[in-house]
Amino acid sequence: MSGFALEAGASWRNLAWGFQDGSADSAEDPDAILVDIDTEDMDEYKAGSAKIICYFSVGTVETWRDDVIADMDAWMAVTVGNLEDWDEYWIDITSSAARTLLKTRFERAASLGCDAVELDNVDCYTADECWPHIDGLSTAAQAKAAQIEFNKWQATTAHDLSLGIGLKNALTIIDDLVDEYDFAINESCLQYGECDYYFPFLDADKAVLHTEYIWAVDACSSETKMDTSSNTRILSTKYCTGSDGLCTRGNEWKTCFVDMTSNTYANFDPDTVIAPSAASFRLRGPSSDILFLWTFLLGLLFFMRR
């Protein structure tokens, strides 16, 4: 392992993604700062006490990166399909050539002074534009196994360079990988009722850096770090203050905390936002399927009686 540690409930500043036309984050004195690996302000961030987590995509080719532009043919040779709605291309997760290219990215992160890496698009196994186009993968089960193996390679590569590593989204392989990763990052698990997938990380006292895009301005009434001395099931939650989705300049990320043990949502102002109910994030898997079935049958019965 790398020796990198970020405990559940850690505070963080997100300066790497989720922004449109600029970035802003209200977190003060964070435990960690998330930055793009190509940030021009690395020396400034390193001067502080926060751990520096560097972002880049490991599952897609980001065509605008300098290292890709410098060797475009080699990077495109390991791609298998376009990432929908983005100027990126899925990487063949079974390719040794891809790993050779990606390893240089890890080495650069270490040389820049990053303490950890946050690697995007590690869900080829769920994407129709990705795994069905990889030679040798003919079933979803094979794709999932290949993804787990690829992710374990990422974790080993990071740790060999004394870098921590975070698992982003990829909910259905958390149980297989929680021991390999130092923390997790999630988008919108409250909105989609999926936060309980992260109990393995939280129960291991590993931070889950969590973002939501659905709440209104000033929904958080406090930015005080929650006391986690008796409860490690704390999501390190942020939300965008803007009402138009992604943060824009002036519409910053704000810090909240979500207590997953008592099913309460700390620091949310009920006058400005209705927090999701506890049931909304607990309802997934077979339970949600049963609810849908009953709703469908009741609707069908209604129309048959008309």
Rank of each mutant, 00 (worst) to 15 (best):
M1Y: 11
S2A: 10
A5M: 10
A10K: 02
S11F: 08
S11W: 05
A16H: 00
F19T: 03
D21W: 03
D21C: 06
A24K: 12
A27C: 14
A27E: 14
A27N: 11
E28Q: 15
I33A: 10
I37W: 09
D41E: 14
G48K: 09
S49G: 15
K51G: 00
F56H: 05
S57C: 01
S57M: 02
G59P: 03
T60E: 00
V61P: 00
E62L: 00
T63I: 13
D67K: 07
D67E: 14
A70F: 00
D71W: 06
A74L: 08
V78N: 02
D85W: 06
E88G: 03
W90F: 00
D92G: 03
I93G: 01
T94V: 09
S96M: 15
A97L: 12
E107I: 06
A109S: 05
S111W: 05
C114Q: 02
D115V: 02
V117N: 05
D123F: 10
Y125W: 11
D128Y: 04
I134H: 08
D135H: 13
A141S: 15
A145F: 08
A146Y: 09
A146K: 09
I148K: 13
F150G: 07
K152R: 15
W153H: 14
W153N: 11
W153G: 10
A155D: 06
A155C: 12
L161V: 02
L163W: 02
G164S: 01
K168Q: 07
Y181G: 04
D182W: 00
F183T: 01
A184Q: 05
N186I: 04
C189H: 02
C189I: 05
L190E: 00
P200R: 07
D203T: 13
D203S: 14
A204F: 00
D205K: 14
T211S: 15
E212I: 04
W215D: 01
V217W: 12
V217A: 15
S221N: 13
S221D: 12
S221Q: 06
M226T: 13
S229M: 12
N231M: 09
T237A: 15
T241P: 03
G242A: 10
G245T: 00
G245K: 05
L246S: 10
T248I: 14
G250K: 06
G250Y: 04
T255K: 09
M260I: 11
S262W: 01
Y265W: 11
Y265S: 11
A266L: 15
D271W: 03
V273R: 06
S277P: 06
A278P: 10
A278N: 00
A279E: 13
G285V: 00
P286Y: 03
S287D: 12
L291C: 07
L291M: 08
L293C: 01
W294H: 10
W294I: 15
F296V: 13
F296N: 09
F296M: 12
